[in-house]
Simulated assay, not measured.
Amino acid sequence: MSINSLKIVGGVIFILMGQDMLQARLVRTKVDKADVDAYVNDISITPLAIPMICGPGAITNGIVLMESTTNFMEKIILIVVIAVVLMLTYIVLVNSAKIYRWIGPTGNNVLMRLMGLIVMVIAIEFMVSGITPIIRQILKISP
């Protein structure tokens, strides 16, 4: 497994997530009312946002970014940036009800679609940066 393959797979995951966000779809599963009630009342179930916050896309992104660092200082900076993002995510999640009341359902849909577009752009960048070295290696083109 190479980092380039990981970039391509991460790009595909981000494309799928971005497409769902762009179309304002949160969940694709079909469940009946009884399953929803059991899900809501089960304390062991994680919130729906967790797969996007710390799912395969986030993990792939972390691995790719850590692999692209060239020295110890860049690794420290990346870890600090990840900690800052985690803190900002915590603040947003704690205040999500207030934020939703402030922006309303229309603002929420607009932001979700905008973020979906941004996630898809990141996905394309991941895929291109993963495919380019593989194509160069196949065609024996030096960088």
Rank of each mutant, 00 (worst) to 15 (best):
T89L: 08
T106Y: 09
M17D: 02
V31D: 05
E67L: 07
P56Y: 05
T106N: 06
T106W: 12
I79Q: 02
P105A: 07
R25F: 03
Y39I: 01
G130I: 14
L88A: 11
V110I: 15
T106L: 12
D35H: 14
N41T: 07
I59E: 00
R28M: 08
R101L: 07
D37L: 13
R28G: 08
N108H: 12
V27G: 04
F126M: 15
A123M: 06
P105L: 11
A38D: 09
C54K: 07
S96Y: 11
L65Y: 05
N95Q: 14
L78N: 05
D20S: 05
A38M: 10
L117D: 03
M115A: 14
K33D: 07
G107F: 12
K98N: 12
L88C: 11
L117A: 12
I99L: 13
E125T: 08
I122H: 04
I59V: 15
F72Q: 06
L65W: 09
T29S: 12
K75D: 04
D37W: 13
D37Q: 11
K75Y: 11
T89F: 02
G62S: 08
L111H: 01
V27E: 12
G18N: 05
G107K: 14
L22C: 02
Q23D: 02
D42P: 06
M115Y: 11
N71F: 13
V27A: 10
G57M: 08
T69N: 13
N41W: 06
I77Q: 07
L111V: 12
V92G: 09
C54Q: 12
D37Y: 08
R113G: 10
N71C: 13
N109M: 15
I131E: 09
M115C: 06
V119C: 02
F72S: 14
G62P: 01
T132D: 06
I77H: 06
V94N: 11
R28F: 11
K33S: 07
M52S: 07
S44H: 14
L114N: 07
G130S: 05
V84K: 01
V119T: 08
A24F: 06
M21L: 09
L114W: 06
G18V: 12
V85L: 13
I53A: 05
G62Q: 00
V64Q: 09
I91T: 03
A83M: 15
I43V: 12
Y90R: 03
I15E: 03
M115I: 14
G104F: 04
L117S: 05
I99R: 02
R113Y: 13
G107M: 08
E125M: 06
Y39M: 10
I124C: 10
L88F: 15
E74W: 04
S68T: 11
V84G: 00
K33Q: 04
A123W: 12
I103D: 05
W102Q: 13
W102V: 14
M112S: 04
T132M: 15
E74F: 02
V110D: 06
V85P: 01
